[in-house]
């Protein structure tokens, strides 16, 4: 289990438009969501192709049709950030991207969904796969907007808990008797 530190503070979110041009001018890779709602500037530890390939890998690892690219981009940015400070991770990711691209004689990001899955099944368990999967399962599902998509409301204490906000609002089954489930006290 990894310690998740959001890369949010270290990363610049760019609204597409003038800002992108300014950044691309200095040459740092930029990840752009497929819906073009958001782009993220990377450190350069991952090159553009590597970042794009990891994005494709993440979408195949944890495919949620309801989630836009931006949530996966945040995971790529976390990986990029770690690679920026850790030469071992940087090499692992670069080698891993190359392995993805050579597994089937076509670049990974050009493969069909089924072929991509087959490649990932083929490398499952290796150090690169586990690095990406381990990071993703924490970083993808630790985003508050992802929680909302999945129906989780997050912190409840600031709202007074659920005592008056539906902790027992399930109405499609009969309520248990008071002997099993007494009414609220105090």
């Amino acid at each position: 289990m990894t310690t998740h530190e959001s890369a949010m503070d270290r990363r610049r979110f760019l609204r597409l438009g003038g800002a992108v041009a300014a950044v691309t001018a200095v040459g740092a890779p930029v990840l752009v969501a497929s819906d073009r709602a958001l782009a993220i500037e990377l450190t350069g530890a991952l090159d553009q192709h590597g970042a794009d390939t990891l994005l494709a890998m993440l979408r195949r690892l944890y495919p949620h049709a309801s989630l836009g690219d931006v949530y996966y981009l945040n995971v790529v940015a976390d990986l990029d950030s770690e690679a920026d400070g850790n030469a071992e991770t940087r090499q692992l990711l670069r080698d891993g991207v190359e392995e993805l691209d050579t597994y089937m004689s076509l670049a990974f990001k050009k493969l069909s969904s089924g072929y991509q899955t087959k490649v990932l099944e083929g490398i499952e368990g290796n150090a690169f796969f586990e690095k990406v999967r381990g990071k993703a399962v924490v970083a993808l599902y630790n985003q508050k907007l992802v929680w909302r998509q999945l129906g989780y409301e997050g912190a409840s204490f600031p709202k007074g808990g659920y005592i008056n906000r539906g902790f027992d609002d399930l109405a499609w089954l009969p309520d248990p008797p008071a002997s099993a489930s007494p009414p609220t006290n105090g």
Binding site: Y62, P63, H64, R133, V137, V138, Y141, V146, Y152, G154
Partner: peptide, 23 residues
């Protein structure tokens, strides 16, 4: 919560069978 459900529901699992459960 969602973060720990993802980590513990079926550790190591991925792909559509996993995301179907998370959804």
């Amino acid at each position: 919560g969602v973060p720990f459900m993802a980590a513990f529901l079926n550790p190591g699992a991925w792909g559509e069978s996993f995301t179907r459960e998370m959804e």
